[in-house]
Design a binder for these strands. Structure first.
Lengths: 378, 378
DNA sequence: TTGGTTAGTAAAGAGTACTAACTAAAGATC
DNA sequence: GATCTTTAGTTAGTACTCTTTACTAACCAA
């Protein structure tokens, strides 16, 4: 029983055509991972015969998703390989980042995550006065960027703060002053392009997962105005029972009270750790000890909240995303406090680090999610 | 993009034969869920044509896994259905529960989770004196029960405390005094039957998942000598980076110290909540207030530990497994404390409850895991 | 030149599920 | 009572997917 049979995870029947589609996706994924590759090599990687791989590649070339990129220099005996690769111009996506209202961004992103063209808008949001973000601003921004794309885009991915329903409606987003905004519908109707709306932390997590696919079990904590996270377990982004996974900002941390939070309760994680708080401490005095102390307390509280999560899910990585300068001093505090509160792992120890490339992390993640949704490319 | 295409989750190619196997599994799963069913109904449930379903059923009948159970009483116009059902006698498993050394259990379990025959052994384990459980006892117990099975068993499932490696080796199990015991290998060689070894909490969680398949996102907390848990996210049991998911007993809970734990640190969850502690409080005095107080404190601390997990994974259920009499008073405490520490859910509120049928929960879970591993039956 | 190795293609075959058309058996309708 | 309608299940033929086997093409090494 040890060699567990290859198990497929679906709740509906699997037809041969479904398998074919999966195999086509695998080819694209493999190409994304390896770059230009021969058909023979692809066949070995994916686990089909050369014959089948030639057929799969031919289909992808016919669709304009893959193209021939010439002959490899021979590296030994035998006929030199003819390499194929993703057709980058055929895999453009439009990514939108709404996480910072003062700096709404949209960009054309290629399959490697490179931003080809970017535009920004500034929006003033004051939820307290009932002045939310006008969705028309988002639609205009998307249209403007879409017009600059050199090739048709595969889809539009939007990373937004707040809770997003599976149908692409933003249930609630306090930072944007939104309640039940049918964002997917609005943008899709305005553009005629498929639209995917996700939470910004989930997008960031997907970006991290795509760039460093080593960690199959991790949590990415995004520190901004508030605190959110994305959880990856077994290589899959956790969605949750109500599509609200990752909303840890208003979890009470500790058993000794704390400051009163905007949500009305005391000791929420956001009251201990947030960008405004870290920045204020940095700006306030010339006393570096004060800033250190805020980082110390915030990092400790984050570790208190994360410890049960890390233990219960047996995570191997904790990643912090946000302003690097502010979070840099937090990392060792989190690492130390987590070590204090957990049994040491038998094998590889827990890694705590900053996100590999925090810039445009939401944009890249939104683009990656579109690729995943449209092509099954991880 | 809203109708997300049917996505298969594998990292290797999907051959037609893989799809076929999945579809056969789906038939078994559906029969388990619905009981005796017609081929036409199965076809509608699984999502294939009647023709294909007849073929699938014929194969399963040929293997002795499904059998004809006569004609249905006509419930309307049309030819009456000929019903088929799982052949329960052909789907026996042998389940073993090592979670309580003083009461090692093994049983023949049928596909419904009914225990057909059971045997027990008592073992004295004193890890402090280096006297661990002799694996030969387990082998003898398994052999004894196996001899009583009326039909060949599909596999042997063992639920054991401690950390289990994917190859079926028990890495460490303090309660049994075990370190690196190749349990799967030992039992497999002694019996010639496929063996699956899992953590006891994981087995219990699988049992709960099988009996009430409603909750796709839940945590089951097993309270015994220590505290362990099984996490289900998106309907899947979480394994973790080092196959150590669920080990929350030695997570520090709270920010205000606590008793010293056997692991050497202070404030571990196990120091706040455990069966010995609850029982001692119940037995100690005639003062019911004392027992209440222990349940109060233990339940509160459990909620403190679970809150970040529930929020981050957006769980919909928290299930407590263990001695019902002791845990009964803990449930409302956990529910209240969790509500205090979390933002209320927009939709269905969080459910906190006892396991539906705590008796034999590890045995049933181990059996269910064998069915899953051998047949893909959930 | 000859032999060995690797890439890629061609033809034939096995497996899977489909559609179309059938039989069987019941209730409904005239 | 005869005929229509409905549902279950089977038979025959078809399309699709991947495989095995056998081939050509192109290179290195001796």
């Amino acid at each position: 029983m040890s060699p567990t049979p290859r198990r497929i995870s679906t709740s509906t029947a699997v037809l041969p055509a479904d398998g074919r589609r999966q195999n086509l996706s695998l080819v694209l994924q493999t190409l994304r991972r390896l770059g230009p590759t021969s058909r023979a090599q692809l066949a070995r990687e994916v686990g089909v015969t050369k014959v089948t791989m030639s057929d799969l590649v031919a289909e992808l070339i016919g669709e304009g998703r893959v193209r021939d990129v010439g002959t490899a220099e021979q590296a030994g005996p035998g006929k030199p390989a003819t390499l194929v690769d993703l057709d980058r111009s055929g895999l453009l996506t439009l990514a939108v980042d709404l996480s910072v209202p003062a700096r709404l961004q949209a960009a054309v992103v290629d399959v490697t995550g490179t931003v080809l063209h970017r535009e920004e808008r500034a929006a003033a949001v004051d939820a307290g006065q009932g002045r939310g973000l006008d969705p028309a601003v988002v639609v205009e921004l998307v249209r403007s960027v879409l017009a600059t794309a050199q090739h048709p885009v595969l889809g539009i991915g939007i990373g937004t703060p707040g809770l997003v329903a599976p149908d692409g409606t933003v249930r609630t987003a306090p930072n944007l002053g939104w309640t039940d905004v049918a964002l997917r519908e609005l943008v899709a109707e305005a553009t005629g392009v498929p639209v995917l709306v996700t939470n910004d932390s989930d997008a960031a997590t997907q970006a991290e997962l795509s760039t460093s696919p080593a960690s199959q079990d991790m949590v990415l904590v995004q520190v901004g105005r508030g605190v959110g996270c994305g959880v990856v377990s077994g290589g899959r982004l956790v969605r949750g029972a109500h599509h609200a996974a990752g909303e840890i900002g208003h979890v009470t941390v500790g058993t000794d009270g704390g400051e009163t939070c905007s949500c009305g309760r005391a000791g929420c994680l956001e009251t201990w750790l947030s960008v405004p708080r870290l920045r204020a401490a940095l700006d306030a005095g010339d006393d570096p000890a004060a800033a250190d102390s805020v980082a110390e307390v915030g990092g400790h509280r984050l570790a208190v909240a994360l410890a049960p999560l890390v233990a219960a899910l047996d995570l191997s990585e904790v990643v912090l995303a946000g302003p690097a300068a502010l979070l840099e001093p937090v990392v060792p505090v989190v690492a130390r406090s987590l070590a204090d509160r957990l049994l040491p792992s038998l094998d590889t120890p827990l890694t705590v680090r900053l996100a590999t490339s925090p810039e445009d992390i939401v944009l890249r993640g939104a683009a990656a999610l579109v690729l995943w949704d449209r092509l099954g490319v991880v």
